[in-house]
Simulated assay, not measured.
Amino acid sequence: MKVVFVSCAELPSGDSDDDAVVDALVDVGVHVEWAPWDSGADFASADLVVLRTPWDYTERLPEFLAWCESVPALANPLPVVRWNTDKSYMVELADAGVPIVPTTLLRPGDEPEWPSGEFVLKPAVGAGSVGALRVADGDHAAADAHWKALGVPALLQPYQSTVDEHGETAMVFFGGQYSHAFTKGAMLTEDAEMDESGHYVLERLSPAAPDAARRRVAEDVVDAAAGVLGVRRADLLYARVDLVTGADGSPLLLELELAEPSLGFRQADAAAALRFASTIRAALQDR
């Protein structure tokens, strides 16, 4: 059995977070190779092609989606990737009853009325917080300039100040089953730094033990996404639900990652990599 983990040219062998998964797959008889999505590798011969770090896709989304369409055994599958690479999915999840960070979708040509208080303006197609701007209360000139510079659909969200103290809670699911969680520190800060590849903001990560309220919302998010997409939870090889704490203390969805999320193996228990390897083995048997 052959599995290809998909990367990008700047990170041809990933960012090292998946190293334990590769070892776990080898232990159970699965051969793993890394290849950038645009490298011309023979993806069609693989039994399963798993998107891991193709983080330059945001600059070339039509080309990337065309490549996804050409891959017979892609995980997560093309309809999921196409839906999830545009963050306007947040509006659909809100319509499905998911408690989200209030989100307004802006289109080029719109002349937004900026809200009071701090807010975030970020491209609808983006990864790693690239292109996201935290706007200070009343600094509408900065918002206007950033909106004009983006030139693409964007999301407008009130900044959740609880992130400064508590960060985000990222909850990871494999094959629809909860695996583990980790905390991401506030990223839209003055001292934020990009990694050497330029594809994501460096994160401060640590293990997490989510409370019942967060577990419940995360489960609801996965259910809602499966319903919107018309798939079973088990059809999602992986999912990462990013939650923040609202002003009233309740968990809110900030993002749902179904295309190419970091899965936090370095912040998880050692068995997390084994769980993902087992989920991949099960997916191979279903083909």
Rank of each mutant, 00 (worst) to 15 (best):
L205Q: 14
P207G: 07
P207K: 09
P207S: 13
A208K: 04
A208W: 09
A209C: 08
A209W: 04
P210F: 01
D211Q: 13
D211A: 11
A212L: 13
A213W: 01
R214N: 04
R214P: 00
R215A: 13
R216G: 00
R216I: 00
R216L: 12
R216H: 10
V217G: 03
V217S: 02
A218E: 05
A218T: 06
A218V: 10
A218I: 08
E219N: 14
D220A: 15
D220L: 05
D220F: 04
V221S: 04
V222E: 02
V222F: 06
V222S: 07
D223A: 12
A224R: 09
A224H: 09
A225Q: 06
A225G: 06
A225F: 06
A226H: 04
A226G: 10
A226V: 12
A226F: 03
G227Y: 00
V228R: 14
V228S: 01
L229I: 08
L229P: 05
L229T: 01
G230Y: 07
G230R: 03
G230F: 10
G230V: 09
G230K: 09
V231M: 00
R232L: 11
R232W: 00
R233H: 11
R233I: 01
R233L: 05
A234H: 13
A234T: 14
D235R: 02
D235N: 09
L236N: 04
L236K: 03
L237S: 07
L237H: 08
Y238K: 01
Y238L: 09
Y238F: 15
A239T: 05
A239K: 10
A239E: 02
A239F: 14
R240W: 03
R240Q: 03
R240S: 04
R240C: 01
R240F: 06
V241I: 11
D242Q: 12
D242R: 09
D242H: 11
L243D: 04
L243F: 03
V244D: 03
V244T: 12
T245R: 15
G246M: 11
G246K: 07
A247F: 11
A247Y: 04
A247E: 15
A247H: 12
D248F: 12
D248W: 08
S250Y: 02
S250W: 00
P251F: 09
L252M: 13
L253G: 03
L253W: 06
L254F: 13
L254S: 15
E255T: 05
E255N: 05
E255K: 06
E255I: 07
L256S: 06
L256N: 04
L256M: 10
E257D: 04
E257W: 03
E257M: 08
E257A: 13
L258S: 07
L258V: 11
A259T: 15
A259V: 09
P261Q: 07
P261E: 02
P261F: 02
S262F: 14
S262M: 06
S262V: 08
S262C: 13
L263G: 06
G264L: 10
G264W: 08
G264A: 07
F265C: 06
F265G: 03
F265S: 02
R266N: 09
Q267W: 07
Q267P: 00
Q267K: 00
A268I: 10
A268W: 10
A268N: 09
D269G: 15
D269V: 01
D269H: 14
D269M: 08
A270L: 14
A271F: 07
A272L: 12
A273L: 12
A273G: 14
L274Q: 15
L274S: 15
R275K: 13
R275L: 14
F276A: 04
F276D: 02
A277V: 04
S278R: 15
